[in-house]
Design a protein around this nucleic acid. Sequence first.
DNA 1: GTAGTAAGTTCCTTCAAGCAACTGACTGGA
DNA 2: TCCAGTCAGTTGCTTGAAGGAACTTACTAC
Lengths: 151, 151
Amino acid sequence: MQRTDFGDMTCSIARTLDIAGEPWSPLIIRDVWVGIRRFDELQRDLGISRKVLTERLTWLVGHGVLERRQYSDRPPRHEYALTAKGLELTEVLMAISAWGDRWTAGAAGPPTLLRHRACGEHVHAEVRCSHCGEPLHGDDVEVDEGPGARR
Amino acid sequence: MQRTDFGDMTCSIARTLDIAGEPWSPLIIRDVWVGIRRFDELQRDLGISRKVLTERLTWLVGHGVLERRQYSDRPPRHEYALTAKGLELTEVLMAISAWGDRWTAGAAGPPTLLRHRACGEHVHAEVRCSHCGEPLHGDDVEVDEGPGARR
DNA sequence: GTAGTAAGTTCCTTCAAGCAACTGACTGGA
DNA sequence: TCCAGTCAGTTGCTTGAAGGAACTTACTAC
């Protein structure tokens, strides 16, 4: 989808960007997540060209992030839904959104709020350590070689 | 940097993507984060064209994600470093990386591992609720209008 | 039989990506 | 003093993806 192929870099960030890193894709995934599931709705909401939207949807379906399903037989009508793989990407979106709220919202405040159903509060996403549960910041970690490292 | 301007959409995801959503930017930020700070090192490591790298670095410096500093006077030499704003983006990168490890790494396993200095373990990023600390998944939340919503 | 909707497809233009070569300021060695 | 090398870009050319608008197909509703 972009000129340089990120898919075979030995890096989980590059590989993720290869699947969903093209600038429109996160917005498409967000829209499907919040219930905007149909071609024309997506096109109107995003202001994306129909051609590019077709390409992105096909790509995301092909990579198992979205699935396309028929909700009407006659006339044949389709909508898009997140797969389990796609639904997990929304955690990345929540982290992106938290950063945007903090650094780009300005005095007006964040354009949207997230309500956590379990606790009922307006919350934001926090990135935490899977082992000890403490907040995980950029300078709290070291990067080591993993089993999938190359050469 | 892309054809459609995301910067004035009323959405923290779009605004974040406007700053750092072009496909190379997250990889540049990751590289600076792990210590690849100089122009030629970045160019070699990423295989990015020098022209595009120049544009991206200038853009990221202009948006306060990176800062350019001179580490040698004669000859004048520069390197790039993360600002506080940029360092917080690495939390998003860790979330992206966790998704990539889970869904794209395959049998070989993840190419890199993250060691959390505080607890000493190899860990991955988890997105959690800022209020109750429970894991935050895509279907655990509702999206409400925030104070910065438009119209 | 006309209007409308959903989900694309086709065509054309323009702008950004990729690539390679060049520049300029300096260092270090023969 | 000359040559090679390094760092940090800049310039110019080509190609391909993005954006936009119009068209298509298959149906429904009036």
